[in-house]
Amino acid sequence: MNHPCKFSSLLITPLPIRCLLVVCLLLLSGCSKQPSDTYHTYVARLANILQQQPPRSLPLQQLRLTTPAAIEEPSDTLSILQLASLSHCQLGGLISERNNQLGKTATAASTFKYQVEFIQSAAQCLQTLNSTSTIYNTIASATAYKQRYLMHYFNSMLFKEPELNQTWQLTSRELSTAAAGYSDTLAAMTTLVAIKQHIAAQQFSAIDTHALFNALEQLNKYRFNQLLIQSARTQIALNDRASQFLRSVDIATLCPKGKSNQSAQILSNIFKKFYLADIQPYQAQLTGYLETLQPLYTELWFKQPISSEPINTLLAFEQNSNLLKQLKSSAKNHVVWWQTFYKTCEINPI
């Protein structure tokens, strides 16, 4: 078999361009530093000075959405002749376009869009029809059905569209310290929340379906929500494990009263070099993002039929278990140990 990259001949012949590209990509992906790598280095350095094994990192648990319950199918349909009589209405063109797409797989977002546009077009069309006619009653019944279940179609979109359901899925990537897409993600999430609020208030004419697809495009472009939640959960777990590890250290033994201790000074230097210089600013950055985005997550997902209890727990606004409060409290608990350390060891933290 002929291979494009034959490693046995690397010393004899130049490496083909495509092999060089593959090697470069592998090197870049393998050497790409994530914020959690800094934290692992920080804890490993502390453990080395303390002559202990660093704590093992436990994998994060997958967060899952719940499949939406089935809804009853509409009973009223329009015949071909009835549809032909709606040629003067925008609704007629909308239904015809939808019928032409039958057999094709419709996305949850396009299905939701159709329900909204049907509702929006029906009001104008009904004004042109005899209120005692069969076609009038059929359209009125279909409109009432779609209004009643529009929130279901919205939640189905949250459940099925990758740009939305991947928000809660684990990923190997983390949000970088120079992350792009925050402003666009905030705008997209604000759009989705506004649409949901219009549904709840039955303000169907105010729903902008074009803005919906623009929002989904921005979410797909950056995956910011997924990376933010992954990164916050990772930093919380690292804070908790590091704090648990340090609480096992007897500070009084480490710093006997009245005696200088070189190891304690080295620990202080490690804390300042890694935690204060890099980790704490990064966690403050995540906190800032969550302070604006978590309320929007709560609006969309909290206590919804598609949300599992672990997701509800992370979004419960008043509970200490919510993601933002966990990040803040885990960071505070970690710093508290160091405050005790500096006081006991009589070391200037500056």
Rank of each mutant, 00 (worst) to 15 (best):
D76E: 14
Y39A: 05
S57H: 08
S87E: 12
T66D: 15
D76K: 09
L94Q: 01
E97V: 15
L50I: 05
I49S: 09
K104P: 02
T105L: 07
Y39E: 05
T77P: 12
A44E: 11
L91A: 07
A70K: 00
K104R: 11
T111H: 02
Q90V: 15
S85E: 05
T107G: 13
S75F: 00
L86R: 05
R45F: 08
N48L: 12
I95D: 03
A70Y: 02
Q53L: 09
L102N: 04
T66S: 14
H88I: 13
T77I: 14
N99M: 08
T105A: 11
S96K: 04
Q51W: 06
L46V: 02
H88K: 12
A106V: 11
K104Y: 03
S110Y: 04
A84H: 09
Q82I: 03
S79G: 03
N100T: 13
P55A: 06
Q61I: 15
A70C: 08
A44G: 06
G103S: 08
T67Q: 15
T41N: 01
H40M: 10
L50Y: 04
A44N: 09
Q62T: 15
A106M: 10
I95R: 02
L102K: 05
A47L: 03
K113Q: 11
C89K: 03
P68L: 04
S85D: 08
Y39G: 06
K104L: 12
Q82P: 09
A84T: 12
S79R: 03
E97N: 15
L94A: 08
T107K: 00
T67L: 13
S85A: 13
R56M: 10
S96I: 13
S79Q: 00
L94S: 05
L65V: 09
P74Y: 04
Q53P: 04
R98F: 03
Q51I: 12
L58K: 13
P59S: 12
L65N: 09
A69P: 11
L50M: 04
T77M: 13
R56E: 10
H88C: 14
